[in-house]
Design a protein around this nucleic acid. Structure first.
Lengths: 245, 245
DNA sequence: CGGTCTGTTGTGCGGTGTACAATAAGCCCG
DNA sequence: CGGGCTTATTGTACACCGCACAACAGACCG
């Protein structure tokens, strides 16, 4: 509430209670709350410190850098994406993709963090890796094909949803106005399908939208994407194949 | 070369030749060159100005904001992704994905810009939209299914490659060291497949890598991903389906 | 020849991540 | 019980960022 540091307790030094004022969990939770409520741009070390009523440098006692803090936010967001292990491999993949999307939908403003920072960093979720490998092994994938399938699955899981919830430029309003007049500018001879479908696509389709999945979800497209990928995977050869690098 | 503004010409006012010193194309090209050569983090309005030997605010004469400049960089990177229109719809989609990936591979450090900023903004590439719609119409998709398929295709095109070329944290070295000792920490009882495959996966697979597609391309995984998606798309119902929103 | 347009130089503000010093309270050990 | 070590924080400082805005000089046009 106060202007800049807003210290609940004044003066330097260790707090008097014996217990710390801050904690890593509290910092991560506050950061995520800021992202959820005010958008990704409102998140910074300093804004988290402001919200917690401490100096920015106090944050650094619990986390070594902005990047690591982001990594910790990601692991919180991606909690509980693993589906029930009892499912058939195809249903399991469908559930995995859906649960991943649901996790992002719960914190849409955090989506770019994951897409940009690579799924990796920080704590490797070994259970996720093993589970994907296990289900693909169930499906019959072996050797280099198994690893390629693993990468294809992770890429597919993260890829679509990251796009769906991608951040928009801050001048979304001008983008909207731009697209409002767009149908009139289409040359029906050169772009007949676009001319015919623009009414349904403006504001709802990639490249022609000004809002992201938080307000304009692409549920139908996502379902089709998952279905195409999973059923397509079933029709692929499952052995051999070159390694990636 | 000079310290801060490094003006080739001194003093204020309009240049004497009659021709401007700068141009939008030059600014975009310089920005992209900086990104390619020194990484995305080295790109800023101020760094571009430094490279051009002008004041940062001179950049604003040609572009209204950082976001718009980024949008212009994106359109340059994504030039020439459209494949030959004569191809069969499935081959055309394969070619589209491959050409998109090749474009990103030419400027890997720019990958996060596209993934984050949404494919949209700035100049809508109507030819791309129309071409995708046309090929999916060729495939028999109609109505809501056509639009869903369009979104699935764009999401698939951008999604995987964005992940493959996602930026890594600046402390990649410590990540590498961390992952070097990773195989020894795997409990072979709890994670048997990971224990067996970690040797092939460390450094080359999502979540277990410390480099991105610029140095560790996932060619095999990408091929499998494309193949699964395209052949899967062929087996989907092509009419009806609910709209997304 | 005066005014307006153009394309710069320059100044300034509020923001950022984070390195580093200062400091005070709790804790442990002799 | 007292001195030093550890802990958790306040403060200061620096180099960077995007960008708003003023100043201004040359070109161009009536």
């Amino acid at each position: 509430m106060a202007k800049t540091p807003a210290p609940a307790r004044k003066g330097r030094g260790r707090p008097q209670n014996g217990a710390p004022d801050l904690s890593k969990a509290q910092i991560v939770a506050t950061a995520l709350r800021l992202i959820d409520e005010k958008g990704l741009e409102a998140f910074s070390i300093r804004s988290v410190a402001r919200a917690l009523g401490c100096y920015p440098t106090a944050i650094y006692w619990y986390t070594p850098s902005r990047h690591v803090l982001i990594a910790e936010i990601i692991t919180v967001v991606l909690r509980d994406v693993l589906p029930d292990a009892g499912l058939d491999w195809q249903d399991w993949l469908r559930a995995l993709f859906t649960r991943y999307r649901a996790a992002i939908a719960r914190h849409p403003n955090a989506a770019p963090l994951i897409g940009v920072t690579l799924v990796s960093n920080a704590s490797v979720d070994v259970d996720l890796v093993e589970a994907v490998l296990a289900k693909l092994h169930d499906a019959g994938f072996r050797g280099a094909s198994l690893i390629n399938a693993y990468n294809a699955v992770i890429g597919a899981m993260v890829g679509f949803t990251t796009q769906e919830f991608a951040m928009l430029p801050p001048d979304a309003e001008s983008l909207r106005e731009d697209l409002a007049g767009f149908p009139d500018r289409i040359d029906a001879n050169r772009h007949p399908l676009l001319a015919q479908l623009s009414g349904q696509m403006i504001g709802a389709a990639f490249i022609l939208r000004w809002q992201n999945g938080a307000t304009q979800p692409m549920t139908g497209a996502f379902a089709m994407y998952v279905e195409a990928f999973v059923t397509g995977l079933d029709r692929l050869p499952r052995e051999g194949g070159a390694a990636s690098s």
